[in-house]
């Protein structure tokens, strides 16, 4: 019988190293030259087929890079983390080291960490050598890879190698199922959640995204109501349509 396991993955790293671009490449296989900086955190999901019997679904938390956004602990209950640095910015590796230390200290001890050097397409501007990063990763027991969100090189491999490292055998095993009574939603600690058993999580889209379109509807009703009040004062203003979204 095939099974689907769900894991929470968090992306961390300095601002502008390409965390959101890696996610966009992995989830939609796209690259965008113009991307807005992430505010707070964004969620996305993506499923990969590990073998005939197993699919792994990642619930991805893409976070803002700026120091002051660290306050809300986005890596709480994360099963795996991708700590990203930019191979053209040596300072970004220092920041990645800080993140790794923090994860080792504060996160779930069973967390799988992958150190990822992004922007590998910018070879001529490289500041961080492969050897340096790889050596550090080995010392700390991290997975390591280089990738380019722009060209797509190595992006899929990052997520596959993490999936292989995750405790897939039985959902209940795993060192840190601490306090977890089983694979119920709301209790996604330590191990993945088998979606065939968990009835509530049926659809791939996280709740927030699924409902954003519905959120506009009452808003427009409110605006329309205000409009009516104004119309009663000014007959020449027949309708003000909100128009179509232009971005």
């Amino acid at each position: 019988m095939s099974r689907q396991l769900q894991f929470k993955l968090v992306l961390l790293g300095e601002s502008a190293v390409g965390k959101s671009s890696l996610v966009l490449r992995f989830v939609k296989d796209q690259f965008d030259d113009y991307r807005e900086s992430t505010i707070g955190a964004a969620f996305l999901t993506q499923t990969i087929q590990l073998d005939d019997a197993t699919t792994v679904k990642f619930e991805i938390w893409d976070t803002a890079g700026q120091e002051r956004y660290k306050a809300p602990m986005y890596y709480r209950n994360a099963n795996c983390a991708v700590v990203v640095y930019d191979i053209t910015q040596s300072s970004s590796l220092d920041k990645a080291r800080t993140w790794v230390r923090e994860l080792q200290r504060q996160a779930d001890p069973s967390i799988v960490i992958l150190l990822c050097g992004n922007k590998s397409d910018l070879e001529p501007r490289r500041q961080v050598s492969k050897e340096e990063a790889q050596k550090y990763a080995e010392e700390e027991g991290l997975l390591w890879a280089e990738a380019s969100a722009k060209s797509g090189d190595g992006v899929h491999e990052i997520f596959t190698s993490i999936a292989k490292k995750l405790p897939l055998s039985t959902p209940n095993r795993g060192a840190a199922a601490a306090g977890s009574s089983g694979p119920t939603p709301g209790n996604q600690r330590g191990t993945g959640v088998d979606l065939n058993k968990a009835s509530t999580t049926t659809d791939g889209r996280p709740f927030v995204y699924k409902y954003t379109t519905i959120i506009y509807a009452p808003l427009l009703v409110v605006m329309a109501a205000d409009l009516k009040r104004v119309q009663s004062h000014y007959s020449e203003l027949v309708t003000i349509e909100c128009g179509k979204p232009d971005r």
Binding site: I39, G186, T200, V208
Partner: peptide, 23 residues
């Protein structure tokens, strides 16, 4: 029930006055 912390979603709304949350 779905284990979503509302504030994680709403934080960017408040911070950017909804400018990056809708057209």
């Amino acid at each position: 029930v779905v284990d979503v912390q509302l504030s994680v979603a709403s934080l960017p709304w408040f911070l950017s006055l909804y400018i990056n949350s809708m057209p």
